[in-house]
Amino acid sequence: MVIPVHDVLPVRRTPWITYLLIAINVVVFLLTPAARSTDVGAAGVAQLCQQESFYDKYSAIPVELTHEQPLARVPTGAVGVGRGGAVGCVVGPPSYHKIPALSVLYAMFLHGGWLHLLGNMLFLWVFGNNVEDRLGRLRYALFYLFCGYAATYGFALASPDSSQPLVGASGAIAGVLGAYLVLYPRARVWSLVPVLLFIPLRLPAWLVLGMWFVLQWVYSAGYTVSAAGSVAYLAHVVGFVVGALFALPLRGRRPPVGSGYGYPSRR
């Protein structure tokens, strides 16, 4: 696995939608319980219960999506003591009205922790600007949301009875990665290689993103076990494939001469 940090493909216009998406994700995260989590002692248990209650309210949950109705019992955010003095979260009927289909949109802007957020935003920062440049701002925004919905529902259909909350922009960003791979397979991407002591290398996009996709597919298929066991890898796979298929009709359309895509500019 490599860590992309910058590509060498210039853009013709400022990628305002990509910047806006990053800003929204960061601001929303700072307002969620995950940004304030300490996980220390009794305070950590209380924060965990609040966090679970928050995500059950706003995250996308496969069983809710496939049955089109919210869960009958969810964590309330309170801490309770069970048999034997065990401390846990109190569970009861939800005090809110939840629209499962709309929760997919909310979940696209939620993250489970700082590493989750920063990893997603790094990939969006590196690859989103060029895809936005090719699609145009409005179409890019709609494309991003469509890939997020497709990735979430794809995962839900594969695990229709799962009650595990899904959060994160990974599915939508995976769509961006798939589109980038189709549109700019030979673009060069500066990447850090952990196995080589994080030495920066200038690698082709087909290698960086191809390796990323293969790794997601391997994990989703269960051929190996990832340390991040709660990651919805299948959602990444679905989002990537949807994004790549969407970009296929645009592959043969070259930008005009002098647009900053490696063609000589004429004055």
Results as ranks from 00 to 15, higher is better:
residue 30 L to F: 08
residue 28 V to G: 07
residue 45 V to Y: 01
residue 42 A to N: 07
residue 19 Y to M: 15
residue 45 V to C: 03
residue 48 L to C: 03
residue 32 T to K: 00
residue 53 S to C: 12
residue 34 A to S: 15
residue 24 I to N: 10
residue 49 C to E: 07
residue 55 Y to C: 00
residue 40 V to W: 01
residue 57 K to H: 10
residue 38 T to A: 14
residue 30 L to H: 05
residue 57 K to I: 07
residue 20 L to N: 06
residue 50 Q to Y: 03
residue 50 Q to P: 01
residue 50 Q to I: 01
residue 36 R to D: 00
residue 26 V to I: 12
residue 22 I to A: 15
residue 38 T to P: 09
residue 25 N to Y: 03
residue 46 A to Q: 13
residue 31 L to I: 07
residue 31 L to D: 09
residue 35 A to N: 13
residue 49 C to W: 03
residue 43 A to I: 04
residue 27 V to Y: 12
residue 34 A to F: 05
residue 39 D to P: 01
residue 48 L to N: 08
residue 46 A to M: 10
residue 55 Y to L: 00
residue 38 T to S: 15
residue 54 F to L: 00
residue 49 C to T: 04
residue 21 L to H: 05
residue 19 Y to A: 15
residue 36 R to V: 00
residue 41 G to L: 08
residue 41 G to T: 03
residue 35 A to F: 12
residue 41 G to K: 04
residue 37 S to P: 01
residue 50 Q to N: 12
residue 57 K to F: 07
residue 19 Y to D: 15
residue 50 Q to H: 08
residue 26 V to G: 11
residue 43 A to N: 04
residue 19 Y to G: 15
residue 52 E to C: 11
residue 44 G to R: 01
residue 52 E to K: 09
residue 39 D to T: 02
residue 39 D to F: 04
residue 28 V to R: 01
residue 44 G to E: 05
residue 35 A to K: 07
residue 19 Y to K: 14
residue 23 A to R: 01
residue 36 R to S: 00
residue 20 L to Y: 04
residue 40 V to E: 14
residue 31 L to F: 13
residue 25 N to G: 14
residue 34 A to T: 05
residue 22 I to C: 14
residue 29 F to I: 07
residue 33 P to G: 12
residue 28 V to A: 12
residue 43 A to V: 06
residue 35 A to M: 10
residue 57 K to N: 08
residue 43 A to Q: 07
residue 51 Q to H: 02
residue 27 V to R: 08
residue 26 V to D: 08
residue 55 Y to I: 00
residue 54 F to P: 00
residue 55 Y to Q: 00
residue 53 S to F: 06
residue 25 N to L: 10
residue 32 T to Y: 02
residue 56 D to G: 09
residue 52 E to H: 07
residue 34 A to N: 14
residue 20 L to G: 14
residue 42 A to G: 06
residue 52 E to G: 10
residue 27 V to D: 11
residue 33 P to H: 06
residue 35 A to V: 09
residue 41 G to N: 09
residue 29 F to D: 12
residue 27 V to E: 11
residue 45 V to D: 07
residue 43 A to H: 02
residue 53 S to L: 04
residue 35 A to T: 10
residue 49 C to G: 09
residue 48 L to Y: 04
residue 43 A to T: 05
residue 23 A to T: 05
residue 35 A to L: 10
residue 29 F to L: 08
residue 36 R to H: 13
residue 36 R to N: 01
residue 49 C to I: 02
residue 57 K to C: 12
residue 24 I to P: 09
residue 26 V to R: 09
residue 39 D to M: 06
residue 19 Y to C: 14
residue 30 L to Y: 05
residue 46 A to R: 08
residue 50 Q to M: 08
residue 33 P to R: 05
residue 22 I to V: 15
residue 21 L to R: 03
residue 26 V to E: 09
residue 55 Y to P: 01
residue 38 T to V: 11
residue 39 D to N: 10
residue 52 E to A: 15
residue 25 N to C: 15
residue 23 A to D: 04
residue 28 V to M: 11
residue 37 S to D: 10
residue 53 S to V: 04
residue 48 L to M: 08
residue 48 L to K: 02
residue 37 S to M: 11
residue 21 L to F: 10
residue 40 V to S: 14
residue 49 C to A: 11
residue 26 V to L: 13
residue 53 S to Q: 09
residue 46 A to T: 09
residue 48 L to F: 06
residue 37 S to N: 05
residue 33 P to K: 06
residue 31 L to Q: 12
residue 29 F to M: 10
residue 34 A to Q: 12
residue 20 L to E: 06
residue 47 Q to V: 06
residue 47 Q to T: 04
residue 42 A to K: 03
residue 35 A to Y: 10
residue 34 A to W: 01
